[in-house]
Computed example of a mutant assay.
Amino acid sequence: MAARIDHLVTSGTFALDGGEWDVDNNVWIVGDDTEAVVIDAAHDADAIFAALDGRTLRAVICTHAHNDHIDAAPALAARTGASIHLHPADLPLWQQTHPDRAPEEELADGQVLTVAGVDLTVLHTPGHAPGAVCLYAPGLGEHGTVFTGDTLFQGGPGATGRSFSDFPTIVDSIRDRLLTLPPRTEVRTGHGDGTTIGAEAPHLDEWVKRGH
């Protein structure tokens, strides 16, 4: 059976540097009828568990460790027995939310995670956070898919105005790691609507000029 992408939106609070903001997060489930991985277990472990619909959860993959992307990860892992995967450069951020519970697995650039016959290649894309990663699946969807977390959105890079972030670094990550993907690759983001690589590529210089 073919692998598919299931999507749900969960709501909660993003907290960093003493501020709090209400946010809606995209949660992505990649798998078939028997097994799956969750990309960014945000806010609501019960809703994510229900969306799994009895499938075996192989991993909880974190695109980065801002609290709104990981707050439900330990509860979901405890309920399913799945391991949590995070790039080690984001451990300081993780520990702000979960000081007593470390991820089991470290993500590394170039690593390939396979579920339901689909390969997800880890692309380390720092800038929004030191350990931010994207997950590229050329075999998923009609033209391939990349899950970008908060690195690339419809209309530009993720925010870099808070601790652990850097604008020149995120621009380099997008230029070197994402805009080199095929133009029709679907971009599935951490918040809001998706886009394609081809739709965003022409605007790189414009983002740099405005220091988005």
Rank of each mutant, 00 (worst) to 15 (best):
I84N: 00
G198S: 10
D119V: 01
H98D: 04
P183T: 05
T34N: 12
F167M: 10
A51R: 07
N25Q: 13
A45R: 02
E35S: 09
D71L: 13
T10F: 07
A82C: 07
G81Q: 07
L91A: 11
E104L: 06
G211I: 13
R210E: 15
A3K: 05
L181T: 01
V27Q: 02
V122E: 01
G117K: 02
R184D: 15
H124E: 09
D150N: 14
D166F: 05
I70T: 09
A42N: 08
A82L: 10
L52M: 06
R162E: 11
R162A: 14
F153N: 07
P182T: 04
D172L: 11
F153W: 03
S163T: 06
T185H: 03
N26T: 04
A75M: 07
A89H: 06
I5V: 07
V27A: 07
P168C: 05
L135Q: 04
S173K: 03
P157Y: 00
S83P: 15
D68L: 01
A137P: 00
F164Q: 03
H85E: 14
N67D: 08
H191E: 08
D33Y: 01
V208L: 13
T169R: 07
L204P: 02
D33I: 05
E104A: 11
T169I: 10
V23W: 03
L123Q: 06
H66A: 13
F164W: 13
V112R: 14
L52V: 06
H66S: 08
G18N: 15
L181K: 02
H85W: 11
D22S: 14
E106R: 15
L204Y: 03
V9Y: 07
R55F: 09
G192I: 02
D22F: 13
P183G: 13
D24C: 12
V118D: 03
C134K: 04
P182K: 08
A77R: 02
L8S: 03
A199R: 09
E104W: 02
H43E: 06
S173C: 12
D40K: 03
G131M: 08
D68A: 15
G192Y: 08
T97I: 10
A73Y: 01
H212S: 15
R210T: 09
A36N: 04
K209D: 13
D40P: 09
A129S: 11
A51T: 05
E105S: 12
P168A: 08
P138D: 05
L113A: 10
R210W: 11
V122Q: 03
